[in-house]
C-alpha cells in the first residue's frame, strides 16, 4: 500500500464515521478533532476502523502523533 492509498483509506474512514463532513474540509495539517468537530468518540472510532483496515493499533500514548491527516499518513506508513 503506497502513501496515496493510505491517505485515501484514512479519508474514507473519517467520512465513514462522520458522514456530514465534506472531503474538502479535511485539511492535511489541521488537528482533525478541532477542524472537523470530531469528538473523542469519533476519533477513537476512526482509529478502531483504521486498525481493522490497516492492522496497525495506535496506543493512547501516541494519540498526539496522529492528530492531523498528514501525521496519520506518516504514522501508518511507517508501521505498515
Amino acid at each position: 500500500m503506497n502513501i496515496a492509498d493510505i491517505k485515501k483509506t484514512i479519508i474514507k474512514e473519517i467520512l465513514n464515521i462522520a458522514p456530514e463532513i465534506e472531503e474538502a474540509e479535511i485539511v492535511d495539517d489541521e488537528n482533525i478533532q478541532h477542524s472537523l468537530e470530531i469528538d473523542s468518540f469519533d476519533f477513537l472510532k476512526i482509529l478502531i476502523a483504521l486498525n481493522e483496515k490497516l492492522g496497525v493499533e495506535v496506543p493512547e500514548a501516541d494519540y498526539t502523533k496522529v492528530d492531523t491527516l498528514n501525521k496519520m499518513v506518516d504514522y501508518f506508513s511507517k508501521r505498515l
Binding site: 473523542s40 468518540f41 477513537l44 482509529l47 486498525n51 493499533e57 495506535v58
Partner: peptide, 9 residues
C-alpha cells in the same frame, strides 16, 4: 485492544 478502550468521558 483498541476496540475495548475506555474514554475519559
Amino acid at each position: 485492544p483498541i476496540g475495548e478502550r475506555i474514554l475519559p468521558a
